[in-house]
Design a binder for these strands. Structure first.
Length: 576
RNA sequence: GCGCCCGUAGCUCAGUUGGAUAGAGCGACGGCCUCCGAAGCCGUAGGUCAGAGGUUCGACUCCUCUCGGGCGUACCA
């Protein structure tokens, strides 16, 4: 909360006290929220619960509160409207507090100091025996944004790429490679080549079910720990995959603090299993070893060891939880993984709960929806890599970049570094599209919408930044320090300023709810407000005092938009 | 069968954890570049918040049921 809210809160609490209400009881009932309709005021207080506490009718109490909060240097007005009290801040105070804080990069507009909170974020985590396609992007960009949001709020963040480099999918890839593979081809274009092998396996296994048995045998050999053909093969395929994945990651601007894949836990699973056994919850069942979770309302048991003695996804995730607990002491461990794996994480958490492990509290699945493709008859269906219609991320990014390049040629032919800017804007358009809606919603992969750069899109927000930067370049005066500005001259910018005021709470909610789209919505709103403001308020030709005040506003808007975009992992070019 | 998720304007989505008259973008229609970037701005049209009950001062929001769509349901991840 800003000092504006703190001030108002104190005034309201003083008023409730003056009306004879117990301060401690009133404290949690004083909820100062932005009203749905901004015409009502800047902040609204519904007096329902306070009225109950006072034993009065809400409209009566609202009237008494409004009368007691007389205007001061921050509060311009307090008016009762039925059961609500609407407050307005003085425009000069609003402008001063918001713009000065942004200029200083003070929280929440700038990075907060260390909060002491430790957050592990398990994201991207692709199965590297498959090509990096559009479906992998969601976890990658959502997780990346969450890392940035938590860091902004002062948390110690461990961004972890829990690579799928172990288990049956990898064994299947080894099987395909051993049967049909060729090292030259692999080195030439690892991702495409492995995709071809993956597809061939999928086709041939229909006729030759023994392939799966072969894969299982390879996995047993790999997991035996021996230095054998399977291990060398695993190393080769893993190295090539990782190399190939570097391309998409660097284009998306994504980095990790730890790349500890499933294979990393190979030597830690025995201890993890022993710990489960020691807790007395591991039971034999049909030749396998499981933990039953019926008492937690989960019917399906969690398998931790297969009847052939090998481990599973769950076993490795469990070992990973123990490792992270010991290494990082996290308050939260976020798993940015598709909603279709909800049961998996319910089970993982369930096992920890049955073991009475306190770390169970930290485990949080952050689910997201599918990526859907449009079918010929206009319906939406899940992308299927098996059917061969996988769209490689690089192809999508290339297409977006090419389109941006064409627009630049048309609108801004003299732009320096046009290729670099096209890359920034094109990639951002795709990323922004993925972060725009609530993550639980399925993403409809619609080329037309994705490559349209108008309206609520990444380029729209970047364009606002470029436009603001352009003004700052052209004006002959430097941006004045806040002390030198007459904030009363910014009374006409109230919509922009009130939107800026929402930024902090929005980032806070985004972190609490693991929901980057809250930030996306916020930057769209701010871009819209500043665009609208600039229509009627010129900076360049204004008289010096007005120009200076607007200059500070423009600079603040540019800074805040840049910060907001950076929380989404999106750059803000100076020109585009 | 059971569990979970989704259902808001023609399309794609917001709706600040239960508050006032449900808001954007796209598409449609009509305006705005002899002044800072038109990838922009302004306006018009468009709604039984899937449906029915319930909870209460108040429900798009919480509960129950129904309908529609999706995902998941032990040796894959």
């Amino acid at each position: 909360m800003t000092e504006l809210h703190d001030h108002l809160r104190q005034r309201v609490l003083a008023a409730t006290e003056a009306l004879g209400l117990d301060r401690a009881a009133a404290e949690p009932l004083v909820r100062l929220d932005p009203p749905k309709n901004r015409d009502h005021g800047d902040v609204a207080l519904g007096a329902f619960q306070l009225a109950k506490l006072a034993g009065k009718a809400p409209p009566a109490l609202a009237g008494e509160l409004a009368a007691r909060v007389v205007p001061d240097e921050v509060v311009a007005a307090a008016t009762a409207a039925g059961p609500f009290v609407n407050f307005r801040f003085r425009r000069a105070a609003l402008a001063r507090v918001v713009l000065a804080a942004i200029q200083r990069a003070a929280p929440p507009y700038g990075k907060a100091g260390p909060s002491g909170q430790v957050v592990c974020i398990d994201f991207s985590s692709p199965n590297i025996a498959k090509p990096f396609h559009i479906g992998h992007m969601r976890s990658t960009v959502i997780g990346n944004s969450l890392c940035r949001i938590h860091r902004h709020l002062g948390a110690t963040v461990h961004g972890i790429n829990h690579l799928g480099d172990w288990g049956m999918p990898f064994a299947k890839m080894m099987t395909a490679y051993l049967r049909w593979g060729n090292e030259q081809e692999l080195h030439r274009s690892p991702m495409r080549y492995m995709f071809a092998l993956y597809q061939r396996y999928g086709q041939e296994v229909e006729q030759h079910a023994e392939l799966d048995a072969e894969a299982a045998a390879h996995f047993r050999a790999l997991e035996s720990g021996a230095d054998n053909q399977q291990r060398r093969m695993w190393q080769l395929l893993r190295d090539e995959s990782l190399r190939a994945f570097q391309g998409p990651y660097s284009r998306l601007g994504v980095t990790f603090d730890h790349v500890t894949g499933e294979s990393f836990f190979e030597d830690k699973m025995a201890a993890a299993l022993a710990r489960v056994r020691a807790a007395g919850v591991l039971e034999p069942s049909e030749g396998a070893e499981v933990v039953w979770l019926k008492e937690l309302g989960i019917q399906q048991p969690c398998l931790l060891r297969k009847s052939d003695g090998t481990t599973l996804y769950h076993t490795r995730d469990l070992a990973a939880v123990f490792w992270r607990e010991q290494q990082y002491r996290p308050d939260r461990i976020l798993y940015v993984v598709g909603a279709e794996q909800k049961l998996h994480f319910d089970q993982l958490k369930g096992v920890l709960q049955r073991m009475q492990e306190p770390i169970a509290r930290a485990v949080e699945h952050v689910p997201f929806g599918l990526v859907l493709a449009r079918t010929d008859d206009g319906k939406w269906e899940k992308f299927a890599t098996r059917a061969g219609n996988a769209v490689f991320l690089d192809e999508i990014l290339d297409e977006a970049v090419a389109k941006v390049r064409a627009i630049i040629r048309e609108k801004n032919p003299d732009l320096p570094d046009a290729d670099q800017v096209a890359e920034q804007v094109g990639v951002s358009a795709i990323v922004f599209n993925d972060l725009k809606n609530s993550r639980i919603k399925d993403v409809k992969f619609d080329w037309d919408a994705m490559l349209s750069f108008e309206g609520e899109t990444g380029p729209y927000v970047q364009y606002a930044c470029a436009r603001l930067a352009s003004i700052l370049r052209k004006v002959e005066a430097p941006v004045p320090p806040p002390e030198a500005v007459d904030f009363a001259l910014l009374a006409d910018a109230e919509r922009v300023l009130l939107t800026m005021l929402d930024f902090g709470p929005a980032v806070q909610r985004a972190a609490e709810q693991s929901e980057p789209s809250i930030v996306t919505t916020q930057v769209i709103a701010l871009a819209g407000e500043i665009h609208a403001y600039l229509r009627d308020h010129y900076v360049l030709g204004a008289e010096p005092a007005v120009r200076d005040a607007r200059l500070l506003l423009v600079d603040a808007a540019r800074r805040l938009l840049t910060t907001g975009l950076s929380l989404l992992g999106i750059p803000a070019p100076e020109r585009m």
